[in-house]
Amino acid sequence: MATVEHTDGTAEAAPPTGGEGHRRRDFINVAAVSFAGVGGLAVLYPLINQMNPSADVLALSSTEVDISRIQPGQAIKTIFRKQPVFIRNLTPAEIQQANSVPVGDLRDPQTLAERTRDGKANWLITMAVCTHLGCVPLGAAEGENRGEYGGYFCPCHGSHYDTAARIRKGPAPKNLEVPEFEFLSDTVVKIG
């Protein structure tokens, strides 16, 4: 806060004010500067908040997908919040393979049942975003490298995911993320 006691010896300078006046004077100056500070901070809010996702981006936060044409063993890629999603129809062999793994040995322990919906264990829906640094793993399309554990393989830094899309080998710390989803009917799933 600025001092107001500038004295340069000018002849007409007023006599120094007493202690009482001095305190009141300081109080007003402090209050004025405080208000300016609060106002300045308040202005920062819109300037920062404008960079958050806008209303139209948030409105697209759910996607409905028709899964009736995905045969067992097949997978598709779709888009949810501008990010790819895998929807895989697991074969009984793949389900069995996933269930036979001891959960305790996993880096990110989760059972297949925890990653799917009751009665629809064959529908594995995960984000197609490697939990390492965000590449899209291979394994959804026919003939792509599915890694050493028969699920997905991320070629960027060599992360291997198993048939339940759990991380088994490589640098990724977590299983492929399961987004919020629900079955609207047997053939339509809503993600988000």
């Binding site: 809010y45 819109p46 300037l47 908040n49 404008q50 958050n52 806008s54 209303a55 139209d56």
Partner: peptide
Amino acid sequence: MHYAPAGDLAFESVEHIMRDVNQGWLL
């Protein structure tokens, strides 16, 4: 950060600022 200087998008992007961007109308 939100405006698009393209003939077919410019008007729309300004309205996008007004309607969808957080406090965009204020800015």
